[in-house]
């Protein structure tokens, strides 16, 4: 059993780690929106939580170490939506340029009712 190769970084049960830090934080509103996008996308039949998990795993350990939980989620949600054909990378590029051109805060960039 000692010979298998290829343990993936996210499969962390049993590994050494520091003490549990019993802390929590209130979710920022944008984090709640990311969560809502996941719930809604999961209900379309064209996006599964299983895909989201696989993409999160494939983003690698450095993403786990350097990005917050919902940063990782929005990054992964985007990739699954592209894979599933919901929108193209070209459409995403144009949208990102459009959003950046509006300003530098949610207040600048979001006029919609969920902004």
């Amino acid at each position: 059993m000692s010979e298998f190769v290829g343990r993936q970084w996210h499969d962390m049960g049993g590994q050494d780690a520091g003490p549990v830090v019993n802390e929590d934080h209130d979710f920022a509103f944008w984090e709640k929106r990311v969560d809502a996008l996941m719930v809604i996308a999961s209900g379309t039949g064209r996006f599964s939580v299983d895909q989201l998990r696989r993409v999160l795993e494939d983003m690698g350990e450095s993403a786990f170490e350097t990005m917050s939980y919902y940063e990782r989620w929005i990054a992964a949600i985007n990739r699954v939506l592209i894979e599933s054909g919901i929108y193209t990378t070209e459409e995403l590029a144009r949208k990102l340029s459009d959003v950046r051109a509006r300003g530098t805060t949610y207040g600048d960039c979001c006029q919609s009712e969920t902004g």
């Binding site: 059993m1 290829g6 343990r7 499969d11 049960g13 696989r54």
Partner: peptide
């Protein structure tokens, strides 16, 4: 099973074998 296919699986490493 003591397998380790490189891909998405749900069997934790510590239980294999």
């Amino acid at each position: 099973r003591a397998d380790s296919p490189p891909g998405h699986v749900r069997t934790p490493w510590y239980l294999r074998g």
